[in-house]
């Protein structure tokens, strides 16, 4: 309590803080530059990369990356963390491919509401464990990681092929639009609509300083739970987009998608301390990871390097975000 009122920092450090906050307002610049560089590199190596005919396919493959990154961003903005987004996406994937489709519940109008309900419920459980159970977000979502990935394995112990279904369009073109744009667009639309309510502002405020926000009269508990529910919804969309690309049920992808999501978030400049960053950063972060993977494939580097690179990117992102938030 006392330290706060005593922190009457001298002018020099205030200047620095202002500078830091300017960087803080465009934290995705780094990821953006990386994306542009990687795009150019990719285009140089593969002439076909920029061919519009390939875009739908590329976007379709990109979509699950971006969407898990979105899912992971929301709780992080609110000062928490969610490592169960990967398992939730794969659970949705397994549920859709191994349960709903074979049982004739696979039509979009039936399947999408069911899956969204599952995702929102999983997110809600996360939120309740953290807010009501007062568990640390890491532990709560780790336990959910176990439960959700266990459920996915239970449903589909071995990969099941999906057969012909509607998600296939999402990996290519759905009507006039690239399918990837549709799934990413759905998530962005939800985000923009929420931007018209107080929820987003309150979410950022909770992440910035939960005590201050609470005292200003915001229902912090509701905001936190809402953040995890939203994360669940985004992860659900990610699961659908993933199904579109792989067309099988793959319970084993859970961990690597959680990893990609966190890497994309921290690479996109969203502070893991909460309150700073946004979906643009995560979009660019995920795109950077994706493009890097493409680049490695194009240059003939064995795919085995991919995981090494993910890890390095994640550590780099974390160190970056740690340094900027320390300058505060």
């Amino acid at each position: 309590m006392q330290s706060r009122t005593l922190l009457l920092a001298p002018d020099a450090s205030r200047l620095k803080r202002v500078q830091a906050s300017l960087v803080g307002r465009r934290p995705w610049v780094f990821a953006g530059v990386l994306v542009i560089a990687l795009l150019l590199a990719n285009a140089a190596l593969q002439g076909s990369f920029l061919d519009p005919g390939y875009w739908p396919g590329t976007l379709g493959t990109l979509a699950p990356f971006v969407l898990v990154a979105f899912a992971s961003t929301v709780p992080v903005l609110g000062g928490g963390i969610d490592i169960s987004v990967g398992p939730l996406a794969t659970l949705v994937n397994c549920l859709l491919v191994a349960t709903l489709l074979p049982h004739g519940l696979g039509s979009p109008l039936v399947a999408i509401p069911i899956l969204l309900a599952v995702g929102a419920a999983a997110g809600c459980i996360n939120g309740l464990l953290i807010v009501v159970g007062r568990l640390q977000p890491v532990i709560a979502t780790l336990a959910m990681f176990f439960v959700l990935s266990g459920l996915a394995l239970h449903i589909s112990p071995a990969p099941v092929p999906a057969g012909d279904n509607w998600t296939r369009d999402l990996a290519g073109t759905a009507g006039p639009l690239p399918g990837g744009l549709l799934t990413i667009g759905a998530a962005v639309l939800i985000w923009v609509l929420l931007g018209r309510t107080q929820f987003l502002r309150n979410l950022y405020a909770v992440g910035g300083d939960d005590v201050a926000t609470f005292s200003a009269g915001v229902n912090v508990a509701a905001v936190r739970i809402g953040a995890y529910v939203l994360s669940g919804v985004f992860a659900t969309i990610a699961g659908v987009a993933l199904t579109a690309v792989i067309q099988t049920s793959q319970a084993s992808l859970a961990a690597s998608y959680s990893l990609i999501a966190l890497a994309a978030v921290s690479l996109g400049g969203t502070s893991l301390a909460g309150g700073r960053g946004g979906l643009i950063g995560s979009l660019l972060g995920a795109a950077a990871i994706f493009l890097l993977q493409e680049l490695l494939a194009a240059t003939g580097v064995p795919t085995s390097y991919v995981q090494l690179v993910y890890g390095l990117l994640l550590i780099a992102g974390v160190v970056l975000s740690g340094i900027t938030s320390k300058g505060r």
């Binding site: 906050s21 803080g24 502002r201 309150n202 950022y204 405020a205 910035g208 300083d209 201050a212 926000t213 200003a216 009269g217 915001v218 502070s271 309150g275 700073r276 505060r328």
Partner: peptide
């Protein structure tokens, strides 16, 4: 106050 937000946002929190 909540760091990282604008003055306007800070004033209308809650």
């Amino acid at each position: 106050t909540v760091p990282g937000r604008t003055i306007f946002e800070n004033i209308w929190i809650g």
